[in-house]
Simulated assay, not measured.
Amino acid sequence: MTERLARLIPGQLDPAQRAVYDGIAAGDRAKGVQHFPLTADDGSLNGPFGVMLHAPGVGAALQELGSTIRFHTDLSTRVREIAILQVAQATGSEFEWWAHERVGRAAGLTDTELMQLSLGAFGGEDPVESASAAFVANLLASSSVTDKEYAAAAAVLSSEQLIDLTVLVGYYRTLAQLMTVFSVGVPDGERTPVGEHRHAH
C-alpha cells in the first residue's frame, strides 16, 4: 500500500507542524515502555500521526484528545484497550489493531480474549469490562443507543466512563478513517489478524 501523503521528517517541519510532532513524539505516548514504534527510522511518524502533521491545526487538537483518552480517563487500561480493539476490528483498521494488540497484551489481554476481539466479540467475566464491551458494540453497530442498552450500561458504568467510551469510539473511528483515506497501514513486514481477515474477503 502506497501512502497518499509524503512522510514528513523532522527537518521538513514548520513551527506548527513541529509542535504537533513534539506533542506526539515527546509527550505522554513517549513515556515508559513503547509497545509500538511512534516513529520510523527516518524520524517520520507512523500511523495516523504522520497524517496529523499535514493539517497541524486539526492535528494538534486530535493528538491532544488522543493523549487524554489514552492517559487521563476513568477507564482501566484493559477496558480502554478492549474498546480500541473493538473499533479496530469493526473498522478493519490494520494499524489500530497492530498497535493496540501490543498495548492490550501488556495490559493483560490473553490470546483467547484477543481472538474473541478479532472476531467481533468479547466474553469477559469482569462486569465493568463486559458492560463496557457491550456498550461499545452497541455504538459500533448503530448510530443510536436504546433506553434499554443505556440502562444496562449505566447500571455498571459511571456517567464519566460512558462519556469516555463514547468519545474513545469516535476518536479511534476518526483515526481509522484518516488511515483509510490516506492509505496508511502497518509498517512493512507486519501483519495482523484484522488485516488478514479483511484481505481474505
Rank of each mutant, 00 (worst) to 15 (best):
T2P: 14
E3A: 12
R4L: 15
A6N: 12
I9C: 01
P10T: 06
Q12Y: 00
L13R: 05
D14I: 02
P15Y: 10
A16S: 13
A16G: 02
Q17A: 13
Q17C: 03
Y21V: 02
D22I: 08
D22K: 12
G23Q: 08
G23C: 06
G23L: 11
R29D: 03
A30L: 04
G32L: 10
V33Y: 07
H35I: 01
H35M: 07
P37N: 06
L38K: 02
L38M: 13
A40K: 04
D42Y: 03
G43R: 00
L45T: 04
P48A: 14
G50M: 06
G50L: 05
G50C: 08
V51Y: 11
H54T: 08
A55M: 11
G57L: 08
G57H: 08
G57E: 15
G57Y: 01
G59I: 08
A60W: 04
A61D: 10
L65A: 13
R70C: 03
H72M: 00
T73I: 07
L75V: 13
V79S: 12
R80D: 12
E81F: 06
A83G: 04
I84G: 11
A88I: 08
Q89S: 05
Q89H: 14
Q89D: 10
A90T: 09
E94V: 08
E96V: 03
E96D: 09
W97M: 07
W98F: 13
W98A: 05
H100S: 07
E101V: 10
E101R: 09
V103L: 11
A106R: 14
L109Q: 10
D111L: 10
T112F: 03
T112C: 01
E113D: 01
L119K: 06
G120K: 12
A121C: 04
F122K: 10
F122D: 12
G123L: 04
G124W: 04
D126I: 11
P127V: 05
V128R: 15
E129K: 13
A131M: 09
F135D: 01
V136A: 11
L140C: 04
L140M: 06
S142C: 07
S142D: 15
S143H: 14
S143T: 13
S144P: 00
D147S: 12
D147W: 00
D147V: 09
K148Y: 00
K148C: 02
A151D: 15
A154V: 02
A155F: 05
L157T: 02
L157Y: 00
S158A: 03
S158D: 05
S159Q: 11
S159D: 14
L162I: 14
V169P: 07
V169K: 12
R173F: 02
T174C: 13
L175W: 05
A176Q: 11
A176P: 11
L178E: 12
M179T: 13
M179I: 05
T180W: 10
V181L: 14
F182E: 08
G185L: 03
G185N: 06
P187K: 03
E190W: 01
V194Q: 01
E196V: 09
H197L: 14
H199S: 14
A200E: 14
A200R: 13
H201F: 09
